[in-house]
Structure formats: C-alpha cells, structure tokens
Simulated scan of single mutants.
Amino acid sequence: MDKELTVRQAGERRVVAEITSLMTAPSILVDGFGHDAAFVDLRLRDDELLVLNTDRSGLNAAYGLGLAGPECVGDFGVSHAISDIVVAGGIPRTVTVALLLPVDSTLGFVRGVMQGAADAAKRYGAEIVAGDTKQNPKFALIATALGTVSREKRIRRSGARTGDALVVTGVLGSMLLGLIACKRALPLGDRARRIVERAIIEQRPPFSLGRTIAEAGIPHAGTDISDGLPGAIHAICGASECGALVDERRIPMHPDLDELILASGLSPLQLGAAGGDWQFLYAVPPEHLLALKQLAAAQDARVTVIGSVTESREIAVRHLDGAWHRLERIEHDSFADDGNGSGHFSRIEAAASRRGATLEPQHFEALWNRNF
C-alpha cells in the first residue's frame, strides 16, 4: 500500500502533496496553499501585539512506548509551540510545521504526524498555514505558532511582585510516574494506568483555563512548566529580580497515584522537576486569588498555591521533613539531554537524595508565616 512507501521512494513533491491534501485552506489564508510564502489576513487592533514562538520536538514518549500512533507526535509538537503563546496571554492564530524526515520514513507515518498536528491546531483555535519538509538523519518537527495578545494583558516572566502567590495549574509528576512505571514494570491498577498513560499521550497545555486567566488579567507573571517546576520558578524569579519561598507539601500530585508515588522513591519536588505535564506557573497578587479559584472551579480545573514571591533574591524550598534548602535549578536542557528528554528524566531519578544548600530554618519560617 502507498502508505508504506518511504519518503525516498515517494519523493519530496509527493510528500508535500500528501501533507497539503490533508489540509483545508482556512479563510484567513489568502490564495490557499502552494506558494513560496503564506498570505495571512491577520488584522490587528491598535491595542494588540503579535506573539510568536518556535519549538522543536522529536518522537515523543507515547509513540516510543507504543501507547499511540504518529498522530500523538504531531499533537505534541503543535501543543509544545502553542503552550508558550497561551501562557503569555495570547490567542493562537496560525501554525507552521517543518518536518525533518529520515529517508526511510513512510508516507503513513507522515500523514499521521500531520493529521495529529492539524487536529491539535484546530483544538486551540489555530490553523496550519505553511511548512517545509527536509531530509534529516533523525526525525524532528519544528512548529512556529503565531498569535495575538492584548498589549495590556500580555503575561511576561518578569512582573512578579513581593507578596504574590506562586500558583500551579493542574497536577504535576504524572507523566514521569508513567515513564517510571513502564521502565520498572511496576504493577498498576486500571485507574492508575489510565491516568499515567493519558499523561504520557496527552502532553497538552491547560488551554481553556490559561485563556480565561489571561482574559481576566489576573497574573503579574507566568511561564509554562514544560522544563520542570524548579526551572519555571527560577525563570520567573530571575526575570522579575525577586526570590521565592516554596512548600514542597503543597506541590499538587494526582490523588489517585499515591501508591505509585511511594513506589517511585521520588518526592513531589523531584517529580515536578521533570516537566512533561505541561502546566502553568503564575505569580498572582493576593487580591486576585479568590477570582482565580472561582474561574478554575467553573472549568472543573485545579489551581494550587505552592509558595510566594519575596523581595530577597533567595529561592528556598521547605521539604517534606520541614527542612529549608536552596532550590536547585534542575530543568530540561536540550544541550545536556539526548534530544528526547530521557537524559533529563534519568537525572531526576539520580537526584532522589540530593538537596541544595541547607538554610537557617527560623529565618525562612518567619518569612513564610509573614506571607501566609
């Protein structure tokens, strides 16, 4: 069957034709597909800005483990790019997709990837308008997302203020727990298996909640947690020139995964350091917390206060045993990892017993009690 043809056998024109045949030209795409560049009728109001993001992804864990077909690869790549648009307060409008393909990639694989990408774009209210295909020894997908954002409601990493609450959406750690369960062949009940498999397959940002939070103008600052919670906290604090206090006991884990968390040997902070659950971290002024919780409840979503922003540049975490330590900046690093994140996940497991420098407890307990 032609879906088993490799891209080398089919040739680039056939590959491009297969991709464009899956796409329906959206109304904002003037003159359709097939030109040197896409002509997009995107009109901005005086108070709007363009917001753009480009991300590269590879074959994700769900595909590698055989939990889903190539559609999940395209879904992941587009979701990856869209995530930063949404947490910045933007409305996604268009996406471009470049595929870097080994010559033995099949047309069926390419179709699946692009179908997943197109479905993901539509889920976020965007359209794929252009792209490229190139030969490469290793598969990669490069997605560029473009959106619009109100100048007044844009959400930057900078802007956090002393006294702001640090708020996490959703739950963390489920994706890494799933990978650990697969790697170690840990026994899982049916419900736990469904939860972790979904976390591995559906690595998607909290789109609806993120848009609602941005439209309400709630946060002072925000970032996604794709590279892990410690890295996200450091990113906001570094950009905002502030510090933070974080309570590990407040880091949200899925309530139905307690046994798997115990079996993993990892703490909530270490599980949250892996990223992959694709949630958001916000710095929220205390007077907006009630409104935030009401917005989340209306969407049956979860938001959790895990700490607060401080004037001091120190970033400290209170661990489960009550001891205070400096929060290490453990995060996904594409230059240190193997390209698919497994190097990062291995480092998280290896760091199970490591902590940052011990800090004087009375001082930080006093700071915490002052803010909560």
Rank of each mutant, 00 (worst) to 15 (best):
E259M: 11
A181T: 00
G108W: 02
L176D: 01
L141M: 07
T106E: 02
L67N: 03
E197C: 09
A274E: 05
V171Q: 15
A235I: 05
P268T: 05
V7W: 03
A37Y: 14
D337R: 01
I233L: 06
T358Y: 13
A62N: 00
G159T: 06
L99A: 08
N60F: 11
H319E: 14
T223S: 07
D104S: 07
A296T: 08
L49N: 11
G178V: 03
D104G: 03
A88Y: 09
F207N: 12
A25P: 04
T223E: 01
L5F: 05
H254C: 12
V30T: 12
Q270G: 14
A120Y: 06
D300M: 14
I128N: 11
S312N: 10
G112D: 04
L172T: 04
K183P: 02
R151D: 03
E331Y: 04
W368N: 08
R13A: 13
E349Y: 12
T24V: 09
A130M: 06
E202N: 01
A239F: 08
L260E: 09
I213T: 05
Y63G: 11
I236L: 05
I261D: 12
L209K: 04
A214G: 02
V305F: 06
R204G: 02
G178H: 03
R154P: 08
T24C: 04
N53F: 10
L245T: 09
A126D: 05
P26C: 01
N369L: 15
W278T: 15
K153N: 05
G173L: 04
A351D: 01
L245F: 10
L44S: 10
V87W: 06
L209S: 06
F109T: 04
L22M: 02
I218S: 08
L100I: 12
E311L: 12
F280C: 08
I213W: 01
T96H: 11
A199F: 03
R250F: 09
T94Q: 09
L50H: 05
D119C: 13
R198E: 07
R355Q: 11
G341P: 08
V305R: 07
E259C: 11
C237Y: 10
K138I: 10
V168G: 08
A350C: 07
R329P: 01
V284R: 09
G58W: 00
K122N: 14
H35K: 12
W278S: 14
K122P: 07
A25N: 08
